[in-house]
């Protein structure tokens, strides 16, 4: 059947089989492969995207269920500059192999959106639908806390807003600078 789904702001009208999963629509029909599939039982969260603003596992949504909806994937986050959460993930080394990372970041963005001062326990609890096998989560938790902090201009650690929008190269330069002093 015909569906129309807005992915990262652009509408895609496609003929799909009813059984087409949203994740397959994104990966195959739209051609965005940043959203990964790591399991078949709705556990791992690698496929997490935002469906009408809510984090969902796109392996457990049919494309026909998302007909008319707006979907945002990992590819939508960086807009010339990295999103604060992406920035935090690289700075805190919140990824190793990178396979779970897209889903992890998409979940994290929603987790902290309304909780800039989120506590470590709540981050850990909030990530229960995302599995990572490399990092032991320690640096992911740090990254999410850092990302949360940067989201909110009113947080106790208020930062220069420009800090939210530095490039990766610049962040690296700063990190090197920091390690030299």
């Amino acid at each position: 059947m015909e569906v129309s789904i807005k992915v990262n702001g652009k509408s895609y009208e496609r003929e799909v089989e009813p059984r087409t999963l949203l994740v397959d629509f994104i990966r195959e029909d739209v051609g965005l492969t940043g959203t990964n599939v790591g399991c078949d039982t709705t556990q791992c969260g690698a496929c997490t995207v935002h469906l009408d603003g809510a984090a969902v596992k796109s392996c457990t949504v049919l494309a026909v269920q998302a007909d008319g909806a707006s979907v945002n994937t990992i590819e939508s986050l960086a807009n010339g500059e990295l999103h604060a959460m992406q920035q935090a993930f690289t700075e805190k080394h919140g990824l190793q192999c990178g396979f779970c990372t897209s889903g992890m970041i998409m979940t994290a963005v929603k987790l902290v959106e309304s909780h800039p001062d989120i506590e470590e326990d709540d981050i850990r609890h909030g990530l229960e639908g995302n599995l990572c096998r490399c990092t032991g989560y320690e640096n992911i938790v740090r990254a999410v806390a850092e990302g949360a902090r940067r989201f909110d201009p009113h947080s106790p650690w208020e930062m220069d807003p420009a800090e939210h929008k530095i490039t990766l190269r610049e962040a690296e330069r700063r990190a090197r600078e920091r390690s030299r002093t």
Binding site: T35, I74, A78, L82, Q86, T90, A171
Partner: peptide
């Protein structure tokens, strides 16, 4: 040597541009 240089692998992996085999 000895610095926590941020990973050169990261930019593609945090933006959904990883080149995994199934992609």
């Amino acid at each position: 040597f000895g610095s926590s240089v941020l990973r050169l692998e990261d930019p593609r992996l945090i933006t959904g541009k990883g080149r995994f085999t199934d992609n």
